[in-house]
């Protein structure tokens, strides 16, 4: 699968862009948090597309954002 780039993303309609990012992020986030992946993605999709693209390319930033969101979700659940 080709890497998702800013130019590919920019050629898609706005609502489609989040879908594309979510589809790419899903397997990566599922590998970190299988149970919360769907909720983590719905939360991170609120972030700017440029940052989401960065997360796809940088495991460190992906992990740190996932940790942040998991903390929020668990806090919300508690």
């Amino acid at each position: 699968q080709e890497p998702l780039t800013a130019s590919i993303l920019a050629s898609a309609p706005c609502e489609e862009q989040k879908q594309m990012l979510g589809e790419r992020l899903f397997p990566l986030i599922q590998a970190i948090h299988p149970e919360l992946a769907g909720k983590i993605i719905s939360t991170v999709l609120e972030i700017d597309n440029s940052e989401l693209l960065h997360m796809l390319q940088s495991p460190e930033s992906l992990h740190s954002k996932v940790d942040e969101v998991v903390a929020v979700l668990q806090d919300h659940k508690a």
Partner: peptide, 22 residues
């Protein structure tokens, strides 16, 4: 208490409509 359903879950292949009220 009961489990909270927020936020909605993203599923691959299912069109994502954002976090606005469903």
């Amino acid at each position: 208490g009961s489990s909270i359903n927020w936020p909605p879950e993203f599923h691959p292949g299912v069109p994502w409509k954002g976090l606005q009220n469903i």
